[in-house]
Nucleic acid binder design. Sequence first.
DNA 1: CTGAAAGCGCTTACAG
DNA 2: CTGAAAGCGCTTACAG
Lengths: 338, 338
Amino acid sequence: MADVALLAGVSVSTVSRTLRGLSVVSPQTRERVERAAQDLSFAISRSASSLVTGRTRRIAVLVPPTCSWFPGTVLSGISAVLGPADLDLLVYEVASMDERAAFFDRLPARRNADALMVVSFDLTPREHDRLDALHMPVVLVSQHAEGRASVYIDDVAGARRGTRHLVGLGHRRIAFVQSADPSGFSWSSKDRLVGHRQALAEAGVPCDGELVVRVAPDDRASLEAAVDRLLGLAQPPTAVFAEADDVATRILGVLRERRVAVPAQLSVMGFDDQDHARWLDLTTVAQPAREVGRAAAGLVAAIVDVPGTDPSRHIVLPTRLLARGSTAPPPPGTGGGG
Amino acid sequence: MADVALLAGVSVSTVSRTLRGLSVVSPQTRERVERAAQDLSFAISRSASSLVTGRTRRIAVLVPPTCSWFPGTVLSGISAVLGPADLDLLVYEVASMDERAAFFDRLPARRNADALMVVSFDLTPREHDRLDALHMPVVLVSQHAEGRASVYIDDVAGARRGTRHLVGLGHRRIAFVQSADPSGFSWSSKDRLVGHRQALAEAGVPCDGELVVRVAPDDRASLEAAVDRLLGLAQPPTAVFAEADDVATRILGVLRERRVAVPAQLSVMGFDDQDHARWLDLTTVAQPAREVGRAAAGLVAAIVDVPGTDPSRHIVLPTRLLARGSTAPPPPGTGGGG
DNA sequence: CTGAAAGCGCTTACAG
DNA sequence: CTGAAAGCGCTTACAG
């Protein structure tokens, strides 16, 4: 900055004011300073400015591995909004309980970001306490808590809508497949079972415990066993609602091997609307993951830059049913009358 | 830090030395300082230390949208290595040519990171010049350039291996489906066609231009038209090699609709080994995306922290063929003799 | 509208 | 082994 000042023949104060766009600078001076900065391809040191302003213009994001659809998509949405707001994005990825504990123990984001976004996994009470100790604005994404800024979808309502679709097609025997994450993290998607049960109840369909199964992701054997168990029931399901599209797609894979026609013999639906759901013509409850990220980033930007923003605002984004080719009425004679 | 010094009854110099782990500090003093830091849950300001050391301990990563498999997975690998190396990860996502131009124009990473990683897309000569103007170590990921640190796979060899697999099964009419990215970005995956042609040549199979098609991702109609055109040829292909698994999966979707049995009537294979390839039992050429990210981050960490590291090292990671259920010998009577 | 000076919170020679 | 002091590159009152 001293170089720029020298070249432009002004003081560093003036360079600073010009580069921050303060209108107090005269047009001629501005012109000179801007040219000098350009010629030297000067880039400001945020470290130096942070030191005096106390703001880093950096947002920290705590996320599960971005190789998964939801975190990757949310991060993309966050990035799309933060960039134009001139806010940098600092990513802290945690894949295991140990890494998670290390993060909350050390809180590396502290003093190195102006706010923290926590994406996806449910926080423990102890983690909430640590967040309070951070003395930094926090925005929860895909989860929510009283008194904390939160951006999320209504998983219960979404799943209710999904099950209603199946019930509306005439299904009475509907399996629900949950996903058991070996990382030990808890996700809001667990609430989808609640919505499923509500829809069953409102339709007067009894909820059969045999029809609710839980599989480990990436464990092909466990999934095959679960599917075979369902198909082998005295009254097998005529539809399967999977907690997430990736589970649904894996079920589709197993059913193809078992030569079970979808949807002729069995309807399958998922939740999320991941890319492959569209490719495979899978009926699903779409959640706007990218929008969730964008809304959360917008909220963070407002909290950081707009005085008076409610720091504990909740934003709930809508889900929507995408009826595609993997669901149809149950085959005749399967006791649709339940 | 002054607070910690006060509480521990030492100077800030000593606090600084203790917290940085310099062995020069006496055990008793270290003990006292560490307790004080703990009690005040002190976190160092990297802005302040950067200012004097000139190092930020931050790595900037320029990536295409992380909602796609490859960038998301690479980023995850990078993150897994950077964290333990005590390096923060600054993400700059670019989705369009405009955003890309803006990044190279402003170079926001400048002075705010110790190195830059550029993931996935091929750089133009002008962009390379801008990178030189950055005066910062640069690591190329999934692409390579003379004189620049690069971590990538051999796309040509990988594709060669894929086509050899099909040829080995007896296929002579093999379609190749390329992906045309509307963003205008160029990716190393374009080289896969070269490998395909090499394998064809070495097997003495003529390369029929009709069998090479190009589809726009997310354009269902364009894909359907391409598949129908291939199926309608006088001598239709008995196998399809898609440039990437997502394309292969979409082809699988279209074929199911057209009631073409895979692999009985038509073999399909992809490239990448994305999650859904496994779920759908898709034969593919696997590339270790996560390892690519890890290796690149390891190289960056070494360049930044280990004096004498070759700043233009190239690391080539292996691909491997995963023969699964979507490929089989061609159906009898399809002119396998070619 | 512009400049001189202090100070943000660290690290690093330099003494001792 | 420890401390006092200078200085990193900015921003921000304070004068003028």
